[in-house]
Amino acid sequence: MFQLSPAGIDFVKTELNRYETKRSAILPCLYKVQEENGGWVSPEAVNHLADVMDIPAAHINEVLYFYTMYNKKPVGRLHVQVCATISCAMNGARELAKHICDKYQVKEGEISDDGMVTVTKVECLGSCGTAPMMQIGNAYYENLTKESAIEVIEDLKKKSTNQ
């Protein structure tokens, strides 16, 4: 059963106080849940959040299923989000995504066998001047080539296994 950490619960309480209505606080709280639940929001996590926030689970699900930035399925430790909107697409984002998928032998949106990598193509991340680019966690990696992208991922993989 997923449980928010004490810090997470404090975060939720602060967000609840920030807005006039409880529903307004759903977005940041869901991000917190996703962060603490290993990159995705499980149905149990929704129920837990509904209890903590004291609002109906249906209201949370309405928000959760509207936005693609919340993962409704489990993801690997590194969620590689390759921007695939115009500027990046013109600079080879699709090829880049395919290259990463091939390299880690994983289909788009699925988890690699070692549980490390999930690759998804996402809509514009607002970094058109430095296309192609990808986002892993909260960091942007810009002006990528196939090689540099793999380098970044390998680097992060190492860091994440060492931890």
């Binding site: 109906p56 249906a58 209201h59 699900n61 309405e62 299923y65 509207f66």
Partner: peptide, 9 residues
């Protein structure tokens, strides 16, 4: 009772 909602978009 808040059971129903509109999901997806």
């Amino acid at each position: 009772t808040n059971e129903l909602g509109i999901f997806n978009r």
